[in-house]
Each structure stands twice: as C-alpha cells, then as structure tokens.
Design a binder for these strands. Structure first.
Lengths: 327, 327
DNA sequence: CTGTTAGCGCGTTCAC
DNA sequence: GTGAACGCGCTAACAG
C-alpha cells in the first residue's frame, strides 16, 4: 500500500481511504491511485485491515451438511443476502455432530466473525460458553429452540409434522408408519418424530410403526431399506411418512421395484420439498419449509443486529403442505 | 493473550507458544496457561496471527454452485482433506458466471489465501492477472484446460462424453438427441457437447437433435421441457443424452407422464452419477466422475505444493460408465 | 481533502 | 524453557 502511495505520490492513508471509497478524495488523486493500483496489481490485505479496524468482515455459518439441498439453499440465502454488504461468509458443516460443531465454532471464532449463524438449538455446553464469550450476535436457524442463545430464525419441526399428519388423517389414512434416521444426531428429525407421535395420539391412533435407520445423514437409498423393513413388520401400514423427501423418494422407487403401486398399495410422504418431490412421478406429498428464506432472513436479521437495528428476535418462518400424487 | 499470560504468570510469548503446541513448554507452565485460557474463555485471534506469521491458514475454493451435489461433493472432498492440516476452506460460488468468478477471486485474495482451487479453465483476463500476481498455487478442477494457470485436477469432459456415446452406439442406438443448458455459461456442458458431436461423427452419425435450455443451471424440471421439445422436433430419436443426471431424471419422469416407457420407447442417459441415478427406477445410465475425489485430490495436491513437495502437475481423475435401466 | 502518529494482537527473531 | 523488542499491513484518531 505504501508502494501504491509512493507511485501515486500520496500517503498510504490516502490510498486506504481511496480504496474504501467512503471518504472524499480529489478526483485526480483518486485517478492516480487507481492507476498505481492497476500498475502494481495491488490487492488490499483485509487481514491487516481487520486487525486494525477490529472488523473482520466475516459472518460464520454452520450447517449440518452442504451435500443436502435444503441446507445448501439456506447457505445460498445467506450468501446472497450478505452480498448487499461487504460481509463474507465463512461456511462450515458438522455432519450432524455437535462435537464437530463445537470444534468448528472454536476454529471460526479464531477468525473473529462479526456474527454467527447456527443450525438448530442443540450445542455442547462448551460451545455455549464460547458463543457467550464471543460477544457477537448468534442466530439459530431451522428450529425454535426452547433456550435460544440469542436470535432465532426457524419454524417448529414438531408443529410442521403435526400439520402433515393431520392433513393425511383428513385424507383418510389411519395406519401410519414413520421412517427416520439417527435421531440422536438429527435433532430436527427427532422433533418431527415427536410431532408425528403427538398428532397421532390427538387422533386416537397408535404410532409404533417406526423404522429408524442408524445412518447419518439418511439418504435416498436408506428409504428403500426402510420401507422394506416397515412393510415386513407392519404389512397393513397404509401411509409411511419419511423424515425427509430423500428417503421418501427412495421408498417410492423401492415400492415400484416390489411391484407396489404408490399410493394405492401404500402412500408415502416426505418432508422438505426438495426439487425431486415435485419432479418425481408420482409427486411426493411433503412440507415446504422455505430453506432459502431461512438463510436470507437469518442474514437479514444478522445485518440488522450488527447495525443495532435489531435485537434478539425470534422470527418464525413459514411452511406449507404440498399434496401430491404419492398420497 | 497478555491477560492470559498475566494470570498464568508468564509472558504473552509463552502463551503463544503453548497454544501452538509446537515448542517445548514446561509441563506446569503449560497447565497454568491452559487453566488461564479456560478461565478467561480465551480464543486465539488468528487474523492477528496470520498478519504476523504471514500465513493466513486459508485455502480458497470457488465452485459454480453449491446447490449441486457434484460440486458439494468436491467441496466436501476439499474440506475433509484439509482437515488433516490446520487450513480452513473459504468457499464461494459463481452461479456459472466468469464475471462473478473474477469478483470472488478478488475478494478472496484480500484474505490472502495460501492457495486457490477453481472449477474449470475459463477465467476473465483480469482474473488471470490477479491469480498470477497473487503468487500462490492455483488448481483448476473438473476439466483439463488447454492453458492451465498452474496445476490441474480433473478429467476431459469431452472424452468422457465420447466414451458414453461409444457405449450407447455399442448398445445399438443410432438416433441420438442431446439435452443441454446454456453452453456459454456451463463450459463443462459445452465440452460434453463437443464430445457428443465428435463421437457421433466417428460413427458416421448425424447430431443435430439438440435442445439447449437457456437456463443456468439446468435443473430437473428443464429435463422435462427439453425431452418434450426434442421428441416433438425429432420424434424418431431413440436415445437422449442429457448434460447431467438432473435433467435426465426430469426427462424420464416426463416420459412416464407422457405414457412413454423408458428405455423401450426412448432411452435416456445422464452424466455425473448423482445419487438419484442409482435410486431412480429405472436406474439412469450415466458417467461416474468421482466428484469427491476431485476435491480430495485437489486439496492433496495443494498441500503438496504448499510443502514444496509438488509442482504444477496435471492429475487426471478417473471416470467410468454405469449402464443402468434407462438405456 | 490529505498527512502523521499510534497501535490492532499476534509471531519472528534473537537473546539468555 | 522463556522473555523482549519489533514489525506484519492496515486504519482510527487527530491535525491541518
């Protein structure tokens, strides 16, 4: 930067101001500086800048998996919204492990992010301490935790699943199966299971037709295994709800291979409204949860909090049922 | 850090050494330091550290989209491999725009990454200048560019598509259609199209049955539109190759809706071996391209280059045909 | 509109 | 094994 200044015949400070674009600089001074920047191929060193200004320009975000279009959409929502500011996203994924989350939080805090966006409300106690000490806005997403760290942008997975069950009961189904993954790891899956149970008991139905695949995350292929297991144990099941559209799709395809017709022989529903749910034939009945909007709103709330415009609000995001051919 | 030192009764320097874990520290000194760190909830400030050590600990990676499981897998491969080191991934996506890539490169270079991993070999000239000036290892992936910037980890999309066409010709198909997206943006799609043309002319076949959807990126739903357009214009097409499995799946589902049986009435092949290709019924004939391995090998090569163990090598990654029920 | 001074929080280097 | 001095490249604060 000093080099640039030398060539342009100004001090480093003026170069700094010119490159920030926030202060008034004489037009010809600015031109000389930009010419020098071009000539040298100079690129600002933001790590030095952050040290001095005490603003890193980072927002950290941690999702369970990027290999899942719901969370990828959330990450996109965050990035796109952050693009309006000069903030940069520092993204990490936990593979659904709170221990890994703790490590990630620590390693990200070393970069002094100005805010941090997490998925869900389950964290190790050390993670909570780290977050508290960091003194930065924390936003938990994809859930409405009972004891939020700070702000929240999400929806009740329990309620959403209850609504799905209600609508299927209304359709006339009564022998419900549930296909899920490792609930110890996937807390949102666990919440959905709770919603499933609750809704069923409200309707006076039983709910022990459950297949839990102990794999993290649950994939399309697991849906196939699971539906076989479910139908073997409970052959009279008339509808199987899957914890996400991915296993739901796998289940539907497996049914096809088994010679069963969905939904005539067995109805199948998913959760999340992944693209496949609308494209698959039959289409998959599911719950749309606005994955992109969760990210966009979380980033928006973060920006507000950083500008002292917002406080630790809880923003509830919308979801809606999508009835398609699979039920 | 000075605070920690004060509590532990040592200098900040000793704290720094203790936290790095590379130097010898008396056992009880170390314990006192760790206790103080715990007590204060101290977290290292890596931005200050990088400024001083002139090592940011960042590797930048830029992919076209994270909302695509192939590139998400590559990102996972990079992260997982980097986890062996203390490097952190700085991830960005371009939405298939070289202009956006240029912006991203510049904003990432401000963080002084120690290396940068790009997708493909097409960059703006300014981007090339920025990369050259940065003086860090650059790895281009997912392709084998004619004029690589530095190292390369990828495969020839042209060759891979040629191999797919060859195998379908061997299966007896002769009236080939091609479904693709915006080739101006998706250079790998463009390469595949070239391979398609080349292979067909080698076999003395024509190749004008092409539907290009001008959307970026091409999604499942576009496959449906495209197959309709293709069959309307060229009703005698016997096999449609899609630029990726996503539109291939959309096309298969649309055929089902149109009452066509795949592959009896029309065969369909994809590219990329997304999970859906193996789960879908029928399974989708496709080319597996080791998306995760591209990331893992790129990161491995990056580590080697940073340790001066490797030079600007070109690593060719493997691909293989997967014949499934759709052809 | 521009320059000077000081210091951000570490790690490098050298000393002991 | 530990400490002191110094500087990384930039920007805040103040001056003019």
């Amino acid at each position: 930067m000093a080099d640039v200044g030398r060539i342009a015949g100004v001090s480093a400070m003026t170069v700094s101001r010119a490159l920030k674009g926030k202060s008034y600089i004489a037009k010809d001074t600015l031109e000389r500086i930009l010419a020098a920047v071009d000539q040298l191929g100079y690129v600002l060193d933001q790590s030095a800048g952050s040290l001095s200004s005490r603003r890193s320009g980072f927002i950290a975000a941690i999702v369970p998996s990027i290999d899942n279009s719901n969370f990828a959409d959330t990450a996109r929502g965050i990035t796109d919204t952050l693009a309006q500011t000069s903030m940069q996203l520092l993204l990490g994924y936990t593979n659904y492990s709170v221990e890994r989350e703790e490590e990630l939080i620590e390693s990200m805090l070393r970069r002094r992010p100005e805010g941090i966006i997490l998925t869900g409300g389950k964290h190790t106690s050390k993670a909570r301490v780290l977050l508290a000490n960091a003194g930065i806005p924390v936003i938990e997403t994809w859930d409405v935790p009972e004891n939020p760290v700070d702000a929240v942008v999400g929806f009740s997975n329990t309620d959403a699943m209850e609504a799905l069950v209600d609508s299927l009961v209304a359709q006339g189904y009564s022998r419900f199966g549930f296909i899920t993954g490792s609930e110890a790891s996937d807390t949102r899956g666990h919440q959905r299971h709770i919603g499933f149970d609750r809704a069923l008991s409200r309707h006076g139905l039983t709910s022990n037709r459950v297949v839990a695949i102990e794999a993290v995350p649950i994939r399309m292929s697991h849906g196939g295994e699971a539906i076989r297991a479910l139908l073997e144990r409970y052959p009279d099941t008339d509808v199987a709800i899957c914890v996400s559209d991915l296993p739901a799709f796998g289940a539907i395809m497996e049914c096809k291979r088994m010679g069963l017709v969905v939904p005539r022989d067995i109805a199948i529903a998913g959760f999340g409204d992944y693209e496949i749910a609308s494209i698959s034939e039959p289409g998959i009945t599911t719950v749309n949860v606005d994955s992109y909007g969760i990210g966009a709103q979380a980033a928006g709330q973060m920006i507000a909090m950083l500008e002292n415009r917002g406080t630790a609000a809880t923003i509830t995001t919308s979801y809606h049922m999508l009835h398609r051919g699979s039920t």
